[in-house]
C-alpha cells in the first residue's frame, strides 16, 4: 500500500521541475543546502506540505525526520497553506516587553483566526515569530515583506483595514 504522504501527484509538476532545477544547480554537498532548498520550495509552493518535505528529503538523501526537524524549528517555514498576507508579530524579548503580546492579540481578533492558521477568507495567516532583528523598532510586525515598527494595538486596525481594502480594490 502506498503511503499517502509519499504521493507527490498532488504537487504542481511545473513547480517541481523548477525545484529540481534549483537543487541540480547547487554545488558541493547538497545536504548542506537544506535550508536554501526549503526556502526555494516555500517560494514556489507558498507552503511545505508533508509530501513536499519528503520529496526534498529524497532529493537530498536526508531522512524525513531531519527535514521535518528543520522545517518545524524555524517559524518562517509553513507546514499548512497560508493566506495571501502573512502577518508575523515579533515575540523577541525587546518586542515582548514593549507589548507585542497585545499587538498579536489584536491582530488575531481582527483577522478572526488563531496562531499559525489561515483566516477563513484566505487573506491572512498570523504567526508569532522569534526575534527578527529590528529591536530598535520594537514592537515590530511584518506583513509579507513590509515592516511596521513601534506598533501599538490601536495601529493594527488601520494596517488590517489597508490590506482588506487593497484586496477589495484589486477585485
Amino acid at each position: 500500500m502506498r503511503n499517502r504522504i509519499l504521493d507527490t501527484s498532488t504537487l504542481d509538476k511545473e513547480l517541481l521541475k523548477q525545484l529540481d532545477a534549483f537543487i541540480d544547480s547547487l554545488e558541493g554537498d547538497k545536504q548542506e543546502h537544506l535550508i536554501h532548498v526549503l526556502h526555494k520550495a516555500q517560494d514556489l509552493f507558498s507552503y511545505l506540505p508533508q509530501n513536499l518535505q519528503l520529496y526534498i528529503a529524497r532529493k537530498l538523501d536526508l531522512s524525513g525526520a531531519r527535514v521535518n526537524g528543520v522545517v518545524t524549528f524555524y517559524s518562517y517555514f509553513n507546514e499548512k497553506p497560508v493566506g495571501k498576507y502573512i502577518i508575523s508579530v515579533c515575540m523577541g524579548t525587546a518586542c515582548f516587553v514593549k507589548g507585542a503580546d497585545k499587538v498579536l492579540e489584536r491582530v488575531l481578533e481582527l483577522t478572526g483566526t488563531s496562531k499559525n492558521e489561515m483566516s477563513s477568507d484566505g487573506l491572512f495567516t498570523v504567526k508569532d515569530v522569534r526575534c527578527i532583528g529590528a529591536c530598535g523598532l520594537a514592537p515590530v510586525m511584518t506583513v509579507n515583506d513590509k515592516v511596521y515598527g513601534k506598533v501599538k494595538p490601536k495601529d493594527v486596525d488601520d494596517i488590517i483595514r489597508h490590506y482588506r481594502s487593497i484586496q477589495y480594490e484589486s477585485k
Binding site: 536526508l62 531522512s63 524525513g64 525526520a65 531531519r66 521535518n68 526537524g69 518545524t72 524549528f73
Partner: peptide, 13 residues
Amino acid sequence: NDIQTVGVLGALK
C-alpha cells in the same frame, strides 16, 4: 541516525 542510519527519529520544533 549516526549508528544505524535509519533516520526515523529526529528532534522537531
